[in-house]
Design a protein around this nucleic acid. Structure first.
Length: 637
DNA sequence: GCGTACTGCGCC
DNA sequence: AAACGGCGCAGAACGC
């Protein structure tokens, strides 16, 4: 059906009138309407407010604090910012200033160095109140205030997260400076951000501090309007609701058994030594090679250099064009040295990135690992994690067994079962998938049976594994060639290109709903649409100078909704979890890790399951959502 | 000597 | 033309 501009706008307004709530969701058809609308509208916002000078009041004694906060107690919306001395690590830095802003009122700057913690109760009460707390990257303020015994309560409006929700997929700075320049046409001077906040403060420093708290209020107004206009309000609310859980998780950190880790490291290094000897036959090819019997004098290559490895392999008569796993795995049977090479490289990664790298992030104060969690780290809406990245710790038991709960605690490890396949079933409405899930059937087995033309009961575990590769590859648009390679590399099954494309064809014949879904997305891709939406309404954009890839558009609605679901679960979990002794310590996309006092396992387990299932059901119904929870002594099980 | 792009690989 | 997607990290290679 062809839509006119007018009908798109009419249908769009209809969609917009839905009630906004965190995690409210849209039908597939509605997400299509949003996209078409956004193709029509170009929004230009200009605001010339001047924030060069902003009135403020410095508070440095208890009596003034009480008086100064009185107008804030009745406020519904408060701008918040903190300045810290001694860095930005919540376990080592100290808050120097807390700045609070309400409209038409001087900013209150509270000097925490001058006021005793016991005299801060008016501030504590204010932050615990129901007012909306607005700030830029509130995860930081939340952690710092929590460490000072001033933990702020919901609701929050984080202009940093809001700006990311609005611009997901685009390359742009998310700093307060960039956001105000872009959205308010106000140029902030951030030179003083990293100045010394520990001694006597200058008027310029105080002025700077005041502006940062004040500016987030008009920034919020602007962002809220744009979010609503772009139908991103419920996504933003979901992020805001999730924020305190993320901040708390970062403070909590995760314990690593350093002694056991050191033991593992020693073993890995010993293995690496053995492999190095096996690989000594790989040499730098040279036309007039000298034969030398002592390995330490041979011109042996650097095994971590792709360039040298490639040359050495080719010199041995092995015809390869790349030295990555994909290219080398098919050759392991033919050339034993290739297996040794692959093992060496795997060990090299596990030693440098993990054995050596990870342990450097154990915090000197807490003895735990506190990575930086980025709530919207990925264009799809997924989390990312840095310094260190706990989302890519090797799965092998010896590694993960070093991650343990604190004394008196146990780990609860909760997984969504096959969440992305279930999401595919939901968004495509594929009848065969829906029927299979409602009967509790195994989708990987089903796929294997459909593609191989066998009955379900005939499928063995190896064939099921092939089904898994097919499911996860083909739903995101994998081509026959890559599928062939993958089947060989990860499953050891050698397919001809014809067989591979035959399997691929059968897959899409078997799941006509998925084929239809792909066709639909392909169509909007061909139309040049530069955005993708999840059923939660979350949006990913592509900038004008980058052509969206079809497969990115096929993947985004699935991966993005998975993120929506996990975030809704975290938002639901946060408050009730705080009434227990359990702590959120890690999130790996569809997996949530809690550290739980042994005495509280049963109620916490029930709470965790309920939060996750409710979040899943909200988006997946009628597809059942399954969550598996394990109680374990370590992350390794 | 320093910053950046690339390769390769760990996870979901 | 480009053909599973999403990350972060380490080391080598290269350009300034």
């Amino acid at each position: 059906m062809k839509l006119t501009a007018k009908s798109i706008i009419r249908r769009y307004s209809c969609t917009r009138s839905r009630k906004d709530s965190p995690g409210s969701f849209y039908s597939w058809a509605e997400t299509q309407v949003m996209m078409q609308y956004n193709q029509l509208v170009q929004v230009v916002e200009i605001n010339n407010s001047s924030f060069l000078n902003y009135p403020y009041q410095l508070i440095n004694n208890p009596a003034d604090l009480k008086t100064a906060l009185e107008p804030f107690m009745a406020a519904k919306i408060i701008g918040i910012d903190c300045e810290t001395s001694g860095g930005i690590d919540p376990y080592r830095a100290k808050i120097r200033l807390v700045q609070l802003a309400i409209p038409h009122h001087p900013v209150i700057i509270i000097d925490l160095a001058a006021i005793d913690s016991a005299d801060l109760s008016p501030l504590r009460q204010l932050l615990r109140g129901n007012a909306l707390k607005v700030g830029h990257n509130l995860k930081f303020e939340w952690m710092m205030l929590a460490q000072a015994g001033l933990k702020p309560s919901r609701p929050f409006f984080d202009t940093y997260l809001a700006y990311r929700v609005l611009t997901a997929g685009l390359k742009c700075s998310l700093s307060l400076e960039a956001a105000t320049a872009q959205l308010l046409n106000v140029k902030l001077d951030k030179k003083l951000q990293t100045s010394d906040w520990s001694g006597e403060l200058t008027a310029a420093q105080l002025q700077y501090a005041a502006i940062d708290a004040a500016i987030v209020l008009p920034l919020r107004t602007n962002l809220k309007r744009q979010l609503k206009k772009a139908l991103l309000w419920s996504t933003a609310l979901l992020e805001f609701a999730c924020l305190p859980a993320v901040a708390q998780m970062e403070l909590n950190g995760m314990w690593l058994d350093k002694q056991q880790w050191q033991l593992l490291r020693t073993q890995l290094e010993a293995q690496q030594k053995t492999l190095t000897r096996e690989l000594s036959s790989l040499q730098i090819p040279s036309p007039n090679q000298q034969i030398c019997l002592l390995p330490e004098f041979t011109n042996s290559i650097n095994l971590r250099s792709p360039k040298q490895v490639l040359a050495a392999l080719q010199a041995q008569g092995i015809s390869v064009s790349s030295t990555n796993n994909q290219a080398l795995i098919p050759l392991v049977n033919e050339y034993p040295i290739i297996q040794a090479l692959l093992d060496y490289r795997s060990l090299a990664t596990r030693i440098s990135t993990f054995a050596e790298g990870l342990v450097q992030h154990v915090h000197p104060v807490t003895g735990r690992i506190h990575p930086n969690w980025f709530q919207i780290g990925a264009k799809s809406g997924r989390f990312s994690c840095r310094e260190p990245n706990l989302q890519n710790v090797p799965r092998n038991p010896a590694t993960r067994q070093c991650f343990k709960p604190a004394l008196g605690y146990i780990l609860l490890k909760a997984d969504y079962s096959q969440i992305e396949l279930r999401i595919m079933a939901k968004v495509s409405g594929d009848s065969r998938m829906i029927a299979a899930y409602s009967k509790g059937e195994d989708l990987h087995k089903l796929t294997a049976s459909l593609v191989l033309g066998k009955s379900l009961s005939e499928i063995n575990s190896s064939e099921r594994q092939l089904g898994k590769i097919i499911n996860f590859g083909l739903i995101y648009g994998m081509g026959a060639k890559k599928f062939k390679n993958m089947a060989q590399a990860e499953h050891g099954r050698v397919l001809s290109l014809e067989e591979a494309s035959q399997f691929r064809k059968r897959f899409f014949e078997s799941y006509a709903g998925i084929a239809e879904f792909h066709k639909h997305i392909r169509k909007s891709w061909l139309q040049g649409i530069r955005e993708s939406r999840t059923l939660g309404g979350r949006r990913r954009l592509w900038s004008k100078d980058s052509q969206p890839l079809l497969n990115e558009m096929l993947n985004n609605p699935i991966q993005g909704l998975s993120a929506d679901i996990t975030k809704l679960a975290l938002a639901k979990l946060f408050a009730p979890l705080n009434r227990t002794g359990a702590r959120l310590i890690c999130v790996i996309h569809d997996e949530i890790l809690l550290e739980c006092p042994i005495a509280e396992v049963e109620p916490v387990k029930a709470l965790l399951k309920r939060s996750m299932v409710e979040a899943g059901d909200k988006f997946l119904t009628p597809i059942p959502c399954e969550v598996e929870i394990q109680m374990v002594e370590s992350w390794g099980g």
